[in-house]
């Protein structure tokens, strides 16, 4: 499939190849190389200079797309809506314009019904310089997302960027029909520094990177059931998993909510007293839990599929 796509790609867009790292790529590079070559059409691109109206109050630099790219394109020939956060601008944080673009896209998807939405998360959460607007944007996105899912839209989240998926971004991710995550894709509400600042270093040592990865990182989220799929850190593997999840993602309704209530309830019953991710992995039946952090992606995927079948009906 990739060979076919590469042949038809026009030159300016092929500079970034399929084996390139998702983590290292910019939001624009991710969008262009995830979608079929030349198919991306942006809504309100940077040429329109719709910047944040609030950053100037803090004398901070603006970005012409406010760190959020939205538009449409084709994925393996099929139409798709896409939204991508640029983690290198203000940590991918949600501000007024940044958030409103995604809200508008989801409202349109609800109307169209038949076109799936891909959300390429890369965010530290709410942008504090416009905290009230950012917080509310997250609430509006969640409502628009659920309304779109009720109309039959598949919304697939892809997480593997520099900023991870923190704060309200984690809540939006929890609303998606399905999630794919790479090792680098941390998902959490409170970030490591926030927990340490509020509760002390005894509660969470944010400088202990191994602790951060195994508590919030992609491998733990996959083993816990917080993400449906684990993927290696290449554009190609994110494209493959996105296609798979669009096909397998569940609808939305009372049955899904009841199944999720049961799924989360069972998690608390089984792992409530686990002090560390290692204890959860052992309880899950991972044969060599200590080896998980250093395990290559392919080996980890095999282990994960053995101990925990993805549940596509409970999210």
């Amino acid at each position: 499939m990739s060979a076919l796509l590469t042949e038809t790609e026009d030159k300016p867009q092929t500079a970034w190849d399929d084996a390139a790292s998702w983590y290292e790529a910019s939001a624009r590079q991710r969008v262009r190389s995830l979608l079929d070559a030349g198919s991306f059409k942006e809504f309100i691109g940077p040429e329109q200079r719709e910047v944040s109206p609030h950053l100037r109050v803090f004398e901070l630099p603006e970005q012409f797309d406010d760190g959020m790219i939205v538009g449409r394109g084709r994925l393996s020939g099929e139409p798709a809506f896409i939204a991508a956060q640029e983690g290198r601008f203000m940590g991918g944080a949600f501000g007024e314009v940044h958030g409103a673009k995604l809200t508008g896209l989801l409202r349109a998807a609800r109307y169209v019904k038949s076109i799936p939405v891909l959300i390429l998360f890369d965010t530290g959460g709410v942008r504090l310089q416009e905290a009230n607007a950012g917080e509310l944007a997250i609430a509006e996105i969640m409502r628009a997302l659920i309304e779109a899912r009720m109309a039959g839209v598949k919304v697939v989240g892809l997480i593997g960027g520099r900023a991870g998926c923190y704060g309200g971004g984690g809540l939006i991710a929890g609303c998606c029909s399905a999630l794919a995550v790479s090792e680098q894709g941390r998902i959490s509400v409170s970030g490591p520094e926030v927990i340490e600042t509020n509760r002390g270093v005894e509660e969470f040592d944010s400088k202990d990177r191994a602790l951060v990865w195994r508590t919030m990182g992609g491998k733990h989220r996959r083993l816990l059931g917080g993400a449906d799929a684990f993927t290696s850190d290449t554009i190609q593997s994110f494209r493959d998993i996105a296609l798979h999840l669009i096909r397998s993602a569940p609808g939305f309704g009372m049955d899904v909510l009841k199944a999720e209530q049961a799924r989360l309830g069972e998690r608390l019953e089984r792992f409530s007293s686990c002090a560390d991710a290692l204890d959860i992995w052992k309880a899950e039946g991972v044969p060599d839990a200590e080896a998980v952090p250093a395990m290559p992606a392919e080996d980890f995927i095999a282990v994960a599929n053995k101990v925990r079948e993805p549940r596509y009906d409970a999210r």
Binding site: G170, I172, G174, S188, T215, L224, G225, L257, L264, R267
Partner: peptide, 21 residues
């Protein structure tokens, strides 16, 4: 640590989903 270890983002999202639904 415990709340994040157990996937707090999913629990909060689930509550919001139930209310929106």
């Amino acid at each position: 640590k415990r709340d994040e270890l157990l996937g707090l983002n999913e629990f909060l999202a689930h509550l919001a989903k139930c209310l929106i639904y």
